[in-house]
Design a protein around this nucleic acid. Structure first.
Length: 959
RNA sequence: GCUCGAGUGGUGGAAUUGGUAGACACGUUGGACUUAAAAUCCAAUGGCCAUUAUGGCCGUGCGGGUUCAAGUCCCGCCUCGAGUACCA
């Protein structure tokens, strides 16, 4: 029987499904003997099921994780390897807007396609644990987490999140003066008496400033074309990541997540996880910690000297953040962001019109415009002056759009001699540029080099360097009450509301006072309502505003018709939905106990599985999902629901598989196409054609091309050497370039095992690399050779012998065991495919038919090519799946030889060879080398300290 | 601009981490088997020179350096890719 991969693969895929071969065993189902096995959790980033289905680039990471999961099963681990779908998302919603088709239906169809495609590749997923973020039984728990966040605050002293009731009792007993919490900037101080006298609404307003998710008027990135708010990571170059629509800034009442409370811990946590350095760098950058000082400048005029009027003083102070407090004597002006709240208050009557006009023009400018001309300097003088905290000099206050409202305090102390932007601004508006750096010429550019700084013209800082000056000035600022050392983060709180339909509804209604109220956990999930249209309403409300059945009856505890709203017992529900990252921020924990309806997961399950041992996915999620999920995990940890504050010990970013587009060259203005080698003789235009029409030698199948698209039906082709050769270009795999290769076609023609091997063989997992279907014949013929090793004769009958394996065969096998085990542990899956090929070639030429060798080989190959391995395993007489067969143990003795010749080279000229026994130790080898020929080699007169011998290689002598 | 990462045959990529550069595969060329094609198998395949076999020289983006020995380490460049961007 020949290698019939279609039959074999179907057979084993059915077998695995029928026998639930890959079902992980965990506490809720009874651990029994599996409890003795160590656990291992291998996770893939679950996909968004798009309508286009999978192309060959998508499964790359899944294949790698599958190999690892299968390997760990062979190694005796109880492996958790689940899969699910991140099934809320924009494409299904946009499709719904266009067609009226409910997103749930589209999503269901797409999932079916995905599942079929995944199944045909032969993954060892535990499908009994499948989750979908759009499933109410799943998003029930997303809503639950939201409620927990709402009911929590961040205690900076304890450096963790705590229940809001703890905070309330502090307020009741001591007010908030002693509370050190992550909260809104504008939180007022109050005593316990104040608190106890506050109205119920007032109390709620204040608590909202402390909650980890809170409602606030935030300046958001509004995308008019999509009718929704976008997070920073959903904007690329000032336009929306999806669709490329313009984005403007707008104030809206939105739910936000107080991720900034966790900024430092998110940074610190990176130290203890094994994630790729570039990804860690991206997160570090995103969090953007900078150390400096906060300095307060009094606004001159109109302020009172009286200490009783604290409030008024505060209103007339400008707080700035600077990383260079040492340059404070170089301040010659201040700049506020146009949006800064103090601007209207301090602007002089004379400057008012000019300032208003400037604010208006900058507000109109989109983020994109603003970024596009960074070079243009603009700004307006406010007419107001601030007072220097040390010199008491008057400093003019300007506004300028190079100062961002969203970073620091939205105000800067401008030191033109030390900062290029301040310098440019000062030059442009003829503001003085005092020099405070010793021996530095600042006539052309600012001097921003911290390391070589020596401060001068700065009173008590004269002669100091950056570090000492900074320490001293901060101490001085603290003494006079004008500032303090401060660490600032670039990270902003994450806006959590989306004006979309196809997302998780908030478990929130608004009471008679308009205050948000959480729906009791017992009544979750709050299911997404049906709507007529998936667009925003005519009044500009989110799509849920179209729902007629979207009110909360707080007595019946159910969602009821909007007509019943009376603001006594029936209230309106929140119209926004949650963003895409909500569903993906705890999904990895839900897999541990996915059907639990009483809790997000059981204590037993989380205690047993703990965390993810290996997480594989794309690096594009660096500052999105991978940051938010770490934030939620830390929150879950603080509140005691999970035992680890980092959820993934190791993470690998698989590279992208790019497409290799095929290009034909049309002579301009004609219907004539010339082959690649002739194109330079004509004026041609390039057309991309379907890559599936090209053979392995870049030769075009002209007949198929004519059928492919009508425009080619009657085209003429100018050949070279009787062939039409196409040009090739490596680019992203996309329908647009006609370079998409579908895994279905590959599985049909070469089989899933070939696809799996080839995807690994292409190159290192983490690298991006081009797909070229032609090369797959290499791994495919390897599989055929592997098959033949177990079969012989004309009819290819299965045949192995029970004779003892030869020495050579054992050596080949154990070399392979060693290399493959190392490769898998190091995630170098590409090189082990080569190792298999060498192994099979050697065993073939050795005419090896030994059962012992061939059994071990089947297990070795099994993680990579599981279908053929299962088939061979069965033919070898085993009644069960190969998946739990123990991984063969490497034994040095089969590989080692009794003695080996070592060629020795000293200066590239003198060479000689020594034959030494393998078991010699260093000293003996050294002695042997010395004894061999003291006169010829360069050791003469030296005293070598050590001799390194590598089998088959040169002796290294370190003198 | 800043931060990472990478440059090795016609192509994808190996190289036990300082030890015979180019494993393995694709492609190409030649051969065997075929009426033929496909499939399969065998041989050659970094460049240059030489040849009667044995051989010789050059070669890992460029220029230096360390070392008995450098694709690998150090210094200075060049090119490409990714991320990020008025972050005070």
């Amino acid at each position: 029987m020949h290698y019939d991969f279609r039959k074999i693969e179907k057979k084993w895929q059915n077998y695995w499904a029928d026998n639930q071969t890959f079902k992980a065993i965990s506490p809720e189902t009874g651990l029994k003997d599996e409890g003795q096995k160590p656990k291992f959790y291998v996770l893939d980033m679950f996909p968004y099921p798009s309508g286009a289905g999978l192309h060959v680039g998508h499964p790359l990471g899944y294949i790698a994780s599958d190999i690892y999961a299968r390997y760990k099963r062979h190694k005796g681990f109880n492996v958790l390897h689940p899969m699910g779908y991140d099934s809320f998302g924009l494409p299904a919603e946009q499709y719904a807007i266009q067609t009226g088709q409910h997103p749930a239906i589209t999503t269901e169809q797409n999932i079916k396609t995905y599942r079929r495609q995944l199944d045909q590749i032969g993954f060892s997923f535990d499908w009994s644990r499948e989750i979908r973020t759009s499933d109410p039984s799943y998003y029930k728990w997303t809503q639950w987490i939201f409620i927990q966040l709402f009911n929590s605050w961040y205690n900076k002293t304890a450096d963790k999140a705590e229940d809001i009731s703890v905070l309330i009792s502090i307020f009741e007993n001591k007010g908030n003066t002693s509370v050190n919490a992550a909260c809104d900037e504008d939180t007022p101080s109050f005593t316990e008496n104040d608190w106890n006298g506050f109205s119920k609404v007032r109390k709620q307003e204040i608590l909202l400033k402390y909650r980890l998710t809170y409602l606030a008027d935030t300046e958001v990135n509004w995308c008019p074309a999509l009718g929704t708010v976008l997070a920073n990571d959903e904007i690329v170059n000032g336009v929306s990541e999806r669709g490329g629509h313009p984005v403007i800034r707008k104030k809206m009442t939105q739910w936000s997540m107080r991720i900034t409370a966790y900024a430092q811990r998110l940074l610190d946590g990176l130290e203890k996880i094994d994630w790729p350095q570039p990804l860690k760098d991206a997160q570090k950058n995103w969090i953007g910690r900078s150390k400096g000082a906060s300095v307060t400048f009094k606004v001159q005029g109109g302020s009172s000297d009286s200490k009783d009027q604290v409030k008024e003083d505060r209103e007339n102070e400008i707080e700035v953040f600077t990383t260079r407090p040492d340059t404070i004597f170089g301040v010659s002006f201040m700049t506020l962001a146009p949006e800064h709240e103090l601007v209207p208050k301090i602007t002089s009557a004379a400057q008012k019109d000019e300032v208003d006009a400037y604010i208006e023009t900058t507000a109109k400018r989109s983020e994109r415009d603003r970024m596009a001309d960074v070079k243009t300097i603009s700004g307006v003088f406010t007419g107001a002056y601030a007072e220097h905290p040390f010199t008491k000099a008057s400093i003019p206050i300007w506004i300028g759009d190079y100062v961002l409202a969203g970073y620091g305090t939205g105000a800067v102390m401008s030191v033109p001699c030390g900062d290029q932007r301040d310098y440019d601004f000062a030059k442009h508006f003829n503001i003085p540029i005092p020099n405070i750096f010793e021996g530095v010429d600042i006539s052309e550019v600012a001097f921003a080099d911290k390391e070589r700084t020596i401060i001068t013209n700065s009173e008590f800082l004269n002669g100091l360097r950056y570090k000492e000056a900074t320490t001293k000035v901060i101490a001085e600022l603290e003494r006079i009450g004008s500032g303090k050392g401060k660490i600032n983060y670039r990270l902003r709180d994450a806006v959590f509301s989306r004006q979309r339909y196809w997302g998780e509804p908030f478990p929130v209604y608004y009471d008679a006072e308009g205050m948000p109220q959480m729906i009791d956990e017992a009544h979750l999930p709050i299911k997404l309502p049906e709507v007529e249209k998936y667009l925003p309403t005519e009044t500009g409300e989110p799509p849920l505003g179209n729902a007629t059945h979207w009110a909360w009856d707080n007595e019946a505890h159910e969602v009821v018709s909007n007509d019943l709203i009376d603001n006594k017992t029936v209230f309106p529900l929140e119209l926004n939905t949650m963003p895409g990252w909500a569903g993906s921020s705890q999904y990895f924990n839900r897999y541990m106990d996915p059907h639990n309806d009483e809790a997000i997961f059981s204590r037993e399950a989380i205690d047993y599985w703990q965390d993810v041992d290996l997480y594989i996915g794309g690096s594009e999620h660096a500052t999105g999902h991978l940051l938010y999920s770490r934030f939620w995990q830390k929150f879950m940890f603080d509140r005691g629901w999970v035992p680890k504050d980092e959820y993934a010990k190791k993470l690998i970013n698989q590279g992208m598989i790019t497409g290799t587009s095929a290009i034909v060259y049309r002579i301009s203005g004609t219907d004539k196409y010339v082959s690649l080698g002739l194109k330079d003789d004509y004026e041609v235009e390039e057309l991309r054609i379907d890559v599936n029409l090209i053979n392995s030698a870049d030769e075009l199948n002209v007949a198929s091309l004519r059928k492919w698209q009508p425009q080619f039906a009657n085209a003429k082709f100018v050949l070279e050497g009787g062939k039409y050769i196409v040009g090739r270009e490596v680019e992203k795999m996309s329908k647009r370039w006609h370079n998409v290769v579908n895994p279905d076609a590959i599985c049909e023609e070469y089989g899933a095992d070939s696809l799996r091997l080839y995807e690994m063989f292409l190159g290192p997992l983490e690298q991006s690399k081009p797909w070229n279907t032609a090369g797959i014949t290499g791994v495919h013929s390897f599989l055929k050779k592997l098959w033949k090793l177990y079969h012989s004769g004309e009819d290819q009958n299965f045949e192995v012998s029970n004779a003892a394996p030869s020495k050579d065969a054992l050596k080949t096998l154990h070399k392979t065991i060693k290399k493959v085990a190392e490769d898998i542990e190091n995630f170098s899956f590409n090189t082990s495919v080569s190792t298999f090929m060498i192994c099979v070639n050697e065993l073939t030429s050795q005419k090896c038919t030994s059962r012992a060798i061939l059994e071990a080989l089947a297990v070795l190959v099994s993680p990579y090519a599981p279908h053929i391995a299962e088939e061979l395993w069965q033919k070898l007489g085993h009644g069960d799946s190969i998946s739990t067969a123990p991984f063969p143990t490497f034994e040095e003795k089969y590989v080692a030889e009794s003695s080996k010749e070592y060629p020795i080279s000293f200066n590239g000229k003198t060479r000689f060879t020594l034959e030494l026994p393998l078991d010699m130790d260093k000293e003996e080898i050294e002695a042997a080398v010395m004894a061999h020929d003291k006169t010829q080699h360069h050791l003469q007169g030296r005293n070598p300290k050590k001799v390194i011998v590598v089998p088959g290689r040169i002796v290294n002598i370190v003198g």
